[in-house]
Simulated assay, not measured.
Amino acid sequence: MVHQRNYDIVAITETWWDDSHSWSTALDGYKLFRRDRKGRRGGGVALYIRGVLDVIGIETNDDEVESLWVKIKGKANKADILLGVCYRPPNQDEEVDNLFYKQLNNVSGSSALVLVGDFNLPDICWELNTAEKQQSRKFLECVEDNFLSQLVSKPNRGGTMLDLLFTNRDGLVGDVEVGGRLGHSDHEIIESSIIGEIRRNINKISTLDFRRADFGLFKRLIQRVPWETVLGNKESRRDGCASRRKS
């Protein structure tokens, strides 16, 4: 499906990956960035990013927070894009929430930031920016303090909005759509376009432009070569090599 839809970036939450499986998570043509849950089953996040994009991973030291950040290089004179994916379990402690808020505060200074993930905060009303629970209200405060806009407007799991998409710049992300599923997931896919000029790695290969060649001159030069002498000497060298190998 990833190749069929020609995605440049794929963000996945709840990968459930760990080192106990022998199957490969590689996807042809994509770089994989992953953070597996430490010490217990479930969770985990991953990013598949098309190989031609110029991207580097950003290290974080918060093992309790299931998040992953990368920087996608922009073209000359264009801002780099900071991209993050996060999975917040439904029963996450406030202490871990605070670690994530600190992490988000550290990266929110980027002029172009995109954050996606499953945050498991179904009581938030994003139309009114209100919430029933204290943890959800604190999450809203963090979003507002970091000047983030939430762009998903439709339910994406069982009539609730668990998967969200944030950005800190108007016009950076567009074409947000909800629909379809990846594999056996019970969450709807969120599709969007990052409207930025991203640097792509280009392999430069020099080739000859035969459309501009002087074939008349080429033919005359070829005719001047004493082919019988050249090929005769080559045949003599070949025979000499053969005889030396036999001795």
Rank of each mutant, 00 (worst) to 15 (best):
E191L: 01
G44Y: 00
I58G: 00
I198C: 06
S67W: 12
V107W: 08
E64Q: 13
N77Y: 10
T167H: 01
I198L: 15
K75L: 12
G74W: 02
V173F: 05
V55R: 03
R211T: 10
V173D: 07
P155H: 02
N61M: 07
G109P: 13
E235A: 15
P226T: 01
F218C: 10
W23Y: 14
D93Q: 08
D145L: 11
E127K: 14
I124S: 02
E144W: 09
I49M: 03
L148R: 00
R212A: 14
R212F: 10
S153N: 14
I198S: 04
S153V: 15
N201K: 13
V70N: 00
K102W: 10
I72M: 05
G196M: 01
S185H: 07
E132F: 06
F166H: 04
R50G: 09
D163Y: 03
L151E: 14
L231K: 14
H187A: 05
V52D: 15
I12D: 08
V55I: 07
L113D: 07
E132Y: 09
R181T: 13
I190K: 06
G232P: 12
D93L: 13
S22K: 07
L32D: 04
R181P: 13
I205Q: 10
N91H: 11
V52R: 07
R37Y: 04
R237G: 07
L164K: 01
L53F: 15
S24R: 02
D239Y: 03
S206I: 09
C241S: 14
V2S: 05
G180W: 04
V10M: 08
T160D: 14
G57L: 10
R212K: 15
D163Q: 02
G180R: 02
